[in-house]
């Protein structure tokens, strides 16, 4: 792994002070790398990435993007540092058009904004055809694409995705994961929280398994896939 683009170090986070959901979890990710964050229900995976994005109060720990310590930054500023987050649900503005959704993320001069918008639409041809449609009228897969396209508008160093495959058909998931591979190939680090363990491990370079808010197992995706602990955690064959 090259020098880390994102480092989250020993995070303690939760909604109620005194009862943290994340209890010292850590991760590091380099350019162009895909890291799958796995774990049983309630392990704190979503809260972990939300805490990295600045959406959950942090009790302890450090978040560093590149060389910049963003631990104390509000969520909307972490984007400037190169950290883009896509939530699992309600991740597009349903009452705004596809174009407006993307334009919200653009910065800079009018020409720069225009160019960023066209780049985003160019990457996802489906969206290019629906640019004036309200996001609420898109299909589930298109919405997910739009959410990711919007996150990419700012050209982030790291993309945090919370269960992007939830509720999508296997065919759409395949398409989506293909896109993610292409995005990573462009140098973006991707942190992927997934319930869909098999698909996630097939896509990811490395994997991290959280249990009760702490790192339990991590390593190259193939090693994690072969570890008996993983099967034990997903009793009932979810991981089979």
């Amino acid at each position: 792994m090259s020098r880390a683009m994102l480092e989250a170090d020993a995070l303690v986070a939760g909604y109620e002070p005194g009862t943290p959901i994340v209890q010292g979890a850590s991760l590091a990710i380099g350019a162009g790398e895909i890291l799958a964050v796995l774990g049983p229900n309630g392990a704190g995976k979503s809260t972990f990435v939300k805490a990295i994005a600045g959406l959950v109060p942090l009790g302890a720990g450090r978040v560093v993007v590149g060389d910049v310590d963003v631990t104390a930054w509000p969520a909307h500023q972490r984007i400037e540092a190169g950290l883009a987050y896509v939530p699992q649900i309600e991740n597009v503005f349903a009452t705004l058009s596809v174009e407006d959704n993307l334009a919200l993320a653009t910065r800079g001069s009018r020409a720069a904004r225009r160019a960023a918008l066209e780049r985003a639409l160019g990457r996802f041809p489906d969206l290019g055809l629906a640019r004036t449609r309200e996001a609420g009228r898109l299909s589930g897969g298109q919405r997910q694409m739009l959410a990711i396209a919007r996150a990419l508008v700012v050209e982030p160093a790291v993309l945090l995705l919370d269960e992007p495959s939830a509720g999508l058909s296997p065919r759409v998931v395949g398409e989506l994961f293909g896109q993610l591979r292409a995005i990573a190939a462009g140098g973006v680090g991707i942190v992927l929280v997934e319930q869909n363990v098999r698909a996630a491990l097939a896509l990811a370079d490395r994997a991290l398994v959280l249990v009760a808010g702490r790192n339990r197992l991590e390593g190259p995706a193939a090693d994690v896939a072969a570890d008996p602990l993983l099967a034990a955690l997903y009793v009932g064959g979810v991981a089979a």
């Binding site: 994005a53 959406l55 509000p74 969520a75 909307h76 500023q77 984007i79 400037e80 987050y85 939530p87 309600e90 991740n91 597009v92 503005f93 349903a94 009452t95 705004l96 407006d100 334009a103 919200l104 993320a105 919007r150 700012v154």
Partner: peptide, 19 residues
């Protein structure tokens, strides 16, 4: 556009980078 976004979903607006 930002005002419409905040009206619909303030949390997502924050995520998207709107102050």
């Amino acid at each position: 556009r930002q005002m419409r976004a905040v009206a619909e979903n303030p949390v997502l607006a924050e995520i998207v980078g709107i102050d």
